[in-house]
Design a protein around this nucleic acid. Structure first.
Lengths: 377, 377
DNA sequence: ACTGCGCCTGAATCTGACG
DNA sequence: ACGTCAGATTCAGGCGCAG
């Protein structure tokens, strides 16, 4: 690797911008996730996707809290002990996760009611800023055979940034496109992992809780850019790696279990990267090149003196040679004039103002689109 | 009152069966919920439904795209200085709630990602046993106006018993009947509270966060028996009381705010106990499941990069990773691209676009049907 | 009376680049 | 760090009014 990239300095006061070598990626690390994350440098990961265990068995997995334990208010000591151990484990891995995550990176954690509340609290307590909780609504969940509760038909994901003012990645347009031109909501209906996709080993399922690729697909498409480095500290059979590879993202997996490692590596090798042209997603206008209104005047797309109106023809404004707009004694930018006339705090002049063409009113944004098509390579 | 009932002894070892007078019910207590619960005897309540403050921590004003301002929840009762202060408050009211709840009673708590994780942890830490987490999927949530996150389209409810071996009430058959003979799942689609149901005071909403009666209806129908006593420590405008009365359950409400108390009492007085035969109208109609084109890409029914054509093979388009279609410089949804290419105002992309299978052209709608068949119960 | 269009509203942690 | 300003951004349902 050795590619240098600039990392924005947002880690506390007085931090300086650092040039950091990109981390070596597309690899599986065999070992304990806390110990292995500890070996990674600060701020090297763009996104962490974590599917932590919640059925910590007594014995090997049981994690002892390091500090003095708070007095249990309750008599249920055994349960408290187990919960405290789980919290300590969660604090430990999330602390490392937070350290290696870039300032503008985000973390996803998935779980069920057994553990997701505890994960959410530790995230908040460590200073992560929750952006959404997402409900994966399973299209085909396992029924509740005994009829004693509601069918447990969903799992919960938490999406969080490092801090309240992080500049995180969210591909809004891509999500809206993926959802037939409606905003993507916080509830996702997706089938559970089964059929061909479910990995087998000796005829039985290779992993008890393999996640569907469609779930990771949406997560990675929404919140990473091509080339971003995604780390999964509980890699299992490598769904995160397989989807990252398909979508042109880099991945790092950490997994303790030998068999899971084997299965994951085979699987990822077999998953083909998508063609570059297919990975493309709808860009936000935010990321499109900007066109000043004045440019349209300069280049003749609009004549100085042209008349613009709002869609209801309530106001009539004149375009001036410098790209400003004159209307009812006002003379300012297309946005300001629109806002002032409406008495609104702000206004998008591009969609507010219209020009007449063939008897129709069209928003001046259409002119901008025409200009962009004509001038972009 | 004065009716005696037997309370099974399940409070730790060596407890004896107690005969307790039934608590006075169907009343509103004005005051602080912690202080007022403290005055109630042990083990006198069958169910607690709690809608505590969410601790939203909103920033500045938020404007809608068309200029209007969002009427945010900025009430003093929702403000806490720190997460620790919120936790302390939660511990305090839940401790009293646990004491007054019968051994076989259950508690419901509703919240959003701002507070629900903390509520869940306190429940677990106090020894409550979580039975389900329920997702209320809002049919008509407020959109995310700035396109910065996923639309926050749900709230979460936690249902918990006093302990792992409680003999709690769950009316399995009633839920299955309510759900068209399918097991009731952990995700409930219900509209938010609006229209006639939304209580007004001087022309504006009487309470910023009034819950829909349909939500309480399902909760009470599922987890209480007729005659049970339901307590709501954050009574607000009394949705819990109104529904309890309709369903023949007894209720106790605790509320600090004078105006909320007034509104609640008026409302409950006006809510008539329900005739058995009227219950049917509460059933929400099953909705035809919608499938976004992007879902077919996510779930592998179509690969990114796949080629689609119209039935006359006049145009050739490429499927992209986000479920958009690329064709002749255009990149948009299946419907928009179809419309633009034909110069039509609109186009049903599902029937317009075809894929090739075994030398035949098939509409992509066929894939949608296949997907539905595979994922619907 | 019915239809269609426009307006209003709902628990919201809701901008970002540049100087 | 802070101020300024360009400009990007919404879905479903209920209700009233016009035709």
């Amino acid at each position: 690797m050795g590619v240098l990239e600039r990392v924005p300095a947002r880690r506390g006061k007085g931090a300086v911008a650092l040039a950091q070598p990109a981390i070596e990626a597309d690899r599986l690390i065999k070992g304990d996730c806390i110990a292995e994350m500890a070996k990674l440098p600060d701020a090297c990961i763009d996104m962490i996707f974590a599917d932590p265990p919640y059925n910590l068995q007594l014995g090997g997995d049981l994690f002892r809290p390091e500090g003095g334990m708070v007095d249990a208010v309750d008599d249920d000591w055994d349960k408290f002990d187990t919960l405290a151990a789980y919290d300590a484990f969660t604090h430990a891995w999330m602390k490392e996760a937070r350290r290696i995550l870039k300032p503008n990176g985000t973390i996803w954690v998935i779980g069920s009611y057994h553990n997701i509340f505890r994960c959410g609290v530790v995230l908040q307590d460590q200073g992560f800023w929750i952006l959404n909780d997402i409900v994966w609504r399973k299209a085909n969940p396992m029924p509740n055979f005994r009829g004693t509760r509601f069918t447990n038909a969903h799992e919960t994901l938490i999406w969080a940034s490092q801090s309240e003012d992080s500049k995180y990645t969210f591909n809004y347009r891509a999500m809206k496109t993926l959802n037939d031109e409606l905003q993507m909501r916080s509830d996702w209906v997706l089938p559970i992992c089964g059929g061909q996709e479910r990995l087998k080993r000796n005829g039985t399922k290779a992993h008890p809780t393999q996640k569907p690729e469609a779930l990771l697909y949406r997560v990675l498409l929404a919140c990473t850019k091509p080339g971003d480095v995604v780390l999964d500290p509980f890699f299992g059979t490598g769904t995160t790696g397989a989807v990252a590879r398909r979508l042109g993202r880099k991945w790092i997996g950490i997994e303790r279990d030998d068999t899971y490692c084997e299965v994951a590596l085979e699987r990822i090798a077999a998953s083909l990267p998508l063609d570059e042209s297919a990975i493309g997603i709808m860009q936000s206008p935010r990321q499109a090149p900007k066109v000043a209104f004045g440019t349209l005047v300069e280049t003749g797309y609009l004549e100085p003196g042209a008349i613009l109106t709002d869609v209801k023809r309530r106001w009539k404004a004149h375009v001036r040679a410098d790209g400003s707009l004159a209307c009812e004694g006002l003379n300012a930018s297309i946005h300001k004039v629109g806002a002032t006339l409406q008495g609104a705090p702000s206004c998008n002049g591009w969609t507010f103002w219209h020009y007449e063409a063939d008897g129709d009113l069209k928003p001046i944004d259409a002119l901008r689109q025409t200009y962009l098509l004509a001038t972009q390579p």
